[in-house]
Design a protein around this nucleic acid. Structure first.
Lengths: 232, 232
DNA sequence: TCAACGCTTCGTTAGCAGCCGAAGCTTTTT
DNA sequence: AAAAAGCTTCGGCTGCTAACGAAGCGTTGA
């Protein structure tokens, strides 16, 4: 009865123990929006002293869950990569059933569109991914997803600037499991770039309270032109 | 800075602490193949006394990760549902990068085909899901996936028995993120039933050492007739 | 040059969680 | 009816770890 699995018991336990402390969990959740935050701010978010926070951050850093950017006397922490963000999103899976009954209690805006790390998730994210796959604008290969040249014309005519649109062709995307929709949306550098461009262009606005993204009326119109529609 | 997320810090920490003990992690991993196992066996797998195992199992049960079947003086434990199995698979995400370099070191058979809970995963699982979606045999709606009547004829002519093939139409499937392929394969009751039928029909055999599924030459031929091919 | 600042390291304390053996309960076997 | 088997509960021990204040270190700004 040898143990052959993606993860052995010790790796799994190690990963679990990273989350097992509410203070660490709070820090990770705070970084889910893709921002970088200094240690002191994360200490406040977690509600612990600077000394305690420092130990927690070291632990998460050594564990490979966080990345670090040092600047003068500040140390900015961020999630290590979008695998970690996708993983944190997936942590909601065991709760999927229990909260399904109280689905209405969940923030509807959050279900409609939100950031997953730094790319678009929720109904809108899934709709975009599926629509573009169907139109052949996105190609899904074994090495991830990529934008097809045919898509750039449509993007430009919908309001994207020509240069950024062309640069998108070089970026790679990847599927990312959406916890509310249980289907894939577009993540990876490509997903980040597209989402960023839509924010810049004013198609989407960030909510203040949470990770929700609010599509503007103009944004909805332009998205519809690109085949992306919200069911409701 | 209120905390609005699928999971709050305490839920996340609670979930993490379930895994944080190697003994509990070992038990969960042992149940990943979808089997039911009595407490005593899980104690042996985890390498702890019956008393300790009992406490761990109670914890996992209360936490909603395990299901229970009582029979006489035996208590059989299983994973609560396939959400939990999918979640455990997703736990490998943060390791995806690190192990990518040593990808060759991973068991190739395991990457090719394996059980995820009780349904087919790996290259073969993803290939089946994508091929059947493309052919219109599978329909993906917001409520999950379902088999279309058109598929049953093909299944029967490929060697499925007529009655089981018809019963499949009633079952619902769902996408399940594949940690090696980073794409969706077919899970849920429908995925379980199809995989089970293929095992019964001798298209696939279970490996002894691990969760790998070994396609037989005959099975490969029949799968190819159903549009399912391994890239290599 | 000195003070303020941001963060980490050190040393200590307190509390929780895992572990086991023994005892108890229930079901099965003889 | 008694013994065995499977599991849980109880009690006590041990070790780990999160917590904080104080001290130390490097950076920034006056």
């Amino acid at each position: 009865m040898t143990e052959v699995s993606p993860l052995n018991r010790y790796q799994l336990a190690e990963l679990g123990s990273m989350l097992a402390e509410p203070a660490r969990a709070a820090m990770l959740l705070a970084l889910m929006d893709g921002t970088m935050r200094p240690a002191g701010e994360l200490a406040r978010v977690a509600g612990v002293s600077a000394a305690t926070a420092s130990a927690h951050l070291k632990r998460l850093l050594d564990g490979g869950l966080l990345g670090l950017h040092e600047q003068g006397r500040h140390r900015y922490f961020r999630l290590a990569n979008d695998d970690v963000a996708a993983w944190l999103e997936a942590m909601a899976l065991p709760h999927a059933n229990r909260t399904a009954s109280s689905a209405a209690a969940r923030d509807p805006a959050l279900c409609r569109a939100r950031t997953c790390y730094r790319h678009l998730a929720g109904q809108l994210g899934v709709a975009l991914c599926e629509a573009w796959l169907e139109r052949g604008w996105l190609h899904a290969g074994s090495d991830g997803m990529s934008l097809q040249p045919a898509a750039t014309d449509a993007l430009v005519s919908a309001g994207f600037e020509a240069t950024p649109a062309l640069q998108l062709l070089r970026l790679r995307g990847r599927g990312c499991l959406d916890w509310t929709e249980r289907r894939l949306h577009l993540g990876g550098p490509l997903g980040v770039a597209i989402t960023g461009a839509m924010l810049d262009a004013g198609w989407l606005r960030r909510a203040h309270r949470n990770r929700a993204l609010l599509p503007t009326p103009d944004g909805l119109r332009r998205l519809a032109k690109l085949g992306v529609r919200l069911d409701t």
